[in-house]
Amino acid sequence: MNIFRLAGDLSHLAAIIILLLKIWKTRSCAGISGKSQILFALVFTTRYLDLLTSFISLYNTFMKVVYIGCAYATVYLIYMKFKATYDGNHDTFRVEFLVVPVGGLAFLVNHDFSPLEILWTFSIYLESVAILPQLFLISKTGEAETITTHYLFCLGVYRALYLFNWIWRFYFEGFFDMIAIVAGVVQTILYCDFFYLYVTKVLKGKKLSLPA
């Protein structure tokens, strides 16, 4: 555990909680992609199956349980409790175009051809692109609520901090996980355009809106 890793995990946690609170407080999931949230629930489910097979630390177990629990709570709020406010007409990204290729790639490029390891690999690849339906929704509506942009910012910062964590671990522990690193770089790059808008607009007090 190093400072980048801890800060990354906390940023990830902050993102998840910001989203849950936003939906709960406003009683609305307008502007939120339910599809991205289903993908994240799938990511956590397939990645944390090792909860059943190996114990790493209390911290590790606690965070995994919280991430999974929050992911399903978010999906529940979007598709059940506040279904009436769900922006289904704009949330039209075809997720099969992500899940199918990512599933194929997980079978082809993995550390070990075993069920748990393939599912872990699948989750890593899927996480790197799971935000695309959300970004697609924003590009369709042309705007995002400020609180939604805070959520996205925390989520992007989390993966960027993990990149620093991997640099740290490479130098000080000789740890090197090519699959996680490549997927993490891809994931971080997907947020770059958003980071730019966040810094130039949201941080200056303006609403994030895209030019028509």
Binding site: S57, N60, Y162, N165, F175
Partner: peptide
């Protein structure tokens, strides 16, 4: 590294 012992990152 032993890949069967699980991944320590989240």
């Amino acid at each position: 590294t032993d890949k069967t012992t699980g991944h320590d990152e989240l």
